[in-house]
């Protein structure tokens, strides 16, 4: 799977990272980080492995990524021209947009009824999944490594055998009256 990801060029990876960071933003990985805009505390989709997941063999969209990157940067260029933004041409156009502009463009691309919604929504879904499930690695390993999404969400640690069990699960109190027409089997009438 990582071998798939490494086939992307640096500029392609940056563009995809900037898109993923728009979906679930995070803190910059290093001072000069351009792809990650630093719009939120803690690791975001990029730190959670979003590009690995997008490029994974299992995900099935890896082959599309170079085309999506071209499309994304073309849209960013058009957006910049329309809104009088001057882009730094040392990075891909989408990366050159600031976080608010990336957000506005992503929202427009994924708006209902637009031609390309079917392209960009799956890319966003992979970004979300990377952050809140860590689906490019085993969940127990992701948690052990301090996966930014699972730990931020408070996903608990499993038992020693890697399985989850919650013996404390109930208030163990009657908390409402049942519907008066409930049948003896506990069903609606």
């Amino acid at each position: 799977m990582p071998s798939e990801a490494t086939r992307l060029t640096v500029s392609e990876v940056m563009t995809l990272e900037a898109f993923a960071d728009t979906i679930i933003p995070g803190e910059r990985r290093y001072a000069t980080d351009r792809a990650v805009a630093g719009a939120a505390d803690g690791g975001g989709a990029v730190a959670a492995g979003a590009v690995d997941l997008m490029a994974s063999e299992e995900g099935g969209i890896g082959g599309l990524l170079p085309t999506l990157v071209i499309g994304l940067n073309d849209h960013a260029q058009a957006y910049a021209e329309k809104h009088d933004r001057t882009l730094d041409d040392s990075v891909p156009a989408f990366v050159a947009l600031d976080f608010d502009d990336r957000t506005a463009l992503a929202a427009a691309l994924m708006a209902p009824g637009t031609d390309e919604q079917d392209l960009w929504v799956p890319l966003a879904m992979f970004s979300v999944m990377a952050w809140d499930t860590g689906a490019s690695v085993h969940t127990t390993e992701a948690l052990a490594a301090g996966h930014p999404g699972l730990t931020t969400m408070g996903f608990t640690e499993p038992d020693a055998d890697g399985l989850w069990r919650f013996p404390d699960f109930s208030y163990r109190r009657v908390l409402a009256s049942p519907h008066p027409h409930t049948t003896p089997s506990g069903d609606p009438a």
Binding site: S170, Y171, R172, L175, A176, P178, T182, G186
Partner: peptide, 25 residues
């Protein structure tokens, strides 16, 4: 009610608070 999880119990209690019924399924 001993089988009803915290989330189910919370929903049931909120229903009762709103004057509604709630059933373990």
């Amino acid at each position: 009610w001993n089988d009803v999880t915290y989330s189910g119990g919370l929903f049931a209690a909120a229903c009762a608070h709103a004057g509604r019924t709630a059933n373990p399924v």
